[in-house]
Design a binder for these strands. Structure first.
Ligand SMILES: NC(=O)c1ccc[n+]([C@@H]2O[C@H](COP(=O)([O-])OP(=O)(O)OC[C@H]3O[C@@H](n4cnc5c(N)ncnc54)[C@H](O)[C@@H]3O)[C@@H](O)[C@H]2O)c1
Ligand SMILES: NC(=O)c1ccc[n+]([C@@H]2O[C@H](COP(=O)([O-])OP(=O)(O)OC[C@H]3O[C@@H](n4cnc5c(N)ncnc54)[C@H](O)[C@@H]3O)[C@@H](O)[C@H]2O)c1
Lengths: 218, 218
DNA sequence: CTTTTTTTGTTAAAAAATTAACATTGTTAG
DNA sequence: CTAACAATGTTAATTTTTTAACAAAAAAAG
């Protein structure tokens, strides 16, 4: 019935497409910096180690249409991806655990333009509480509820020791967080309405090891 | 015709199964430490946020058979997964770029029992070269060929600044590395006989953001 | 002006991954 | 001893993801 510019339901975008859109944008931002105004599907594909068909299909799914024989408009596409991935006014993020990994992530993130911003960090170490790291203030765990509400933080990144993982996840949920990115090697449990993503470097490394070994055998 | 203990061709194990086997092992090692001798498929499933069917199917694929109504023998299963993922005498790994992230990874890894071992690291910063971090010596980039050959290193983990990514990847390949785990936000190119895995935290974070935003809308 | 080339957008097919269904069989309870 | 149960192992169905095929059309070439 209704005629719309975007008849696409974001709800049905494949998970893998979401991941790739983020990666496309990362690559597109670099192209933009280099003054490139248009890009072909096969160029994007090469950067991401995937096929051009897949790029075109993903873009079809988000309803973006390029120019025949000119390819895609870099800045338009960046904006469109932004309108899908980022929330309007941006989403605020907190890091819990300001150790090696936490610092690496904050550092990494602080250079990036994004509508996601790391607004706070939490730790139990009194030496860290009250200090600021790459512009991100570190608070005591006890102030979590207050800070998360006040700063309207929606996502928590966990980089605490594995032993603290379960309780920290619980605390984050209670504080009203809606998504958790868990870098602890300990899987945690969250209610259905909290989105959870877990990543462990050892899994990646062992996967590489497996395929390296395989290749030797064959 | 031939009857074999393991008629399973590891070559055809699904990629996702490889990842999960690594995760199962991580969980099983914890169970072993706690003195648990057997575990049910649904227990493993709960830890990994997947279904029991999937666990059983994965184990079927590697030809492991549990005890009806007792579940799986924890230590047997750990050993079997090890025989699939790890190479016989272990695979040696090097980290390139001893910054925040490099140190976080070395630290993390040094606690783990595994047949994968980080045997060397490389950097260009003279202050770091010649020192040792969590037992891992740091060498100059110029010595890479020699060290990698001498130590029989097969896998390289890249944690250098994005600007150095392409040249470092090339150097690793030339030095004879067979697998690369790239934590740089810059995708790199490798020959077909080198296995490449790339991970970017921003992709994970943006994925979480997307689903958080989605949930708000519905 | 016409033909060829090149690139997009889309539908259809194939492949990969997950989930469901169910047969099987020790174990326990009655 | 027998029936009910609770777990595994496996085949089949479903869903998701990727790849292939190809039509359409702007640009370039002739
Ligand atoms: N997923 C991966 O790829 C990966 C890689 C490296 C490390 N890790 C894991 O990340 C975690 C952090 O690693 P790291 O090297 O930064 O460790 P770290 O010890 O340097 O840092 C941990 C920080 O958490 C703080 N902390 C401790 N208990 C806390 C609590 N209850 N609440 C809040 N903060 C608390 C500590 O004060 C410290 O600052 C570890 O669990 C490690 O295993 C994961
Ligand atoms: N994938 C992720 O999730 C993730 C997270 C955080 C950071 N990162 C990325 O990881 C990389 C490292 O981050 P960091 O915070 O550790 O940075 P860092 O600046 O602390 O460390 C970089 C290290 O690499 C060394 N280096 C520079 N050029 C080199 C070269 N050509 N060869 C060898 N070593 C060289 C530097 O001396 C330094 O020790 C960056 O590219 C960053 O963007 C990725």
């Amino acid at each position: 019935m209704e005629k719309d510019d975007k008849p696409i339901s974001m709800k049905h975008l494949p998970h893998k497409t979401i991941e790739r859109l983020s990666q496309y944008r990362r690559a597109l931002l670099i192209c933009l910096d280099q003054g490139q105004t248009h890009i072909y599907s096969h160029e994007i594909a090469k950067i991401q180690h995937i096929t051009a068909v897949q790029v075109r299909r993903d873009l079809m799914l988000i309803g973006y249409t390029g120019t025949l024989r000119k390819g895609y408009n870099v800045s338009e596409l960046i904006d469109l991806i932004g309108s899908i991935i980022d929330a309007g006014e941006g989403i605020r993020v907190a890091i819990v655990g300001m150790g090696n990994l936490g610092r690496a992530l904050i550092n990494y993130f602080s250079g990036k333009r994004s509508r996601l911003s790391i607004s706070a960090s939490f730790d139990t170490n009194p030496d860290k509480i009250g200090r600021t790291m790459s512009g991100v203030p570190c608070y005591s765990l006890e102030d979590m509820n207050e800070i998360i509400a006040r700063e309207n933080i929606k996502i928590g990144i966990m980089t605490v020791p594995a032993a603290a993982a379960l309780t920290v996840a619980e605390k984050l949920v209670q504080a009203g967080i809606k998504g958790i990115l868990n870098y602890t090697p300990k899987p945690v449990y969250v209610p259905k309405d909290v989105y959870l993503e877990e990543y462990d470097m050892i899994t990646s490394l062992e996967k590489v090891a497996f395929y390296v070994k395989m290749q030797e055998v064959d």
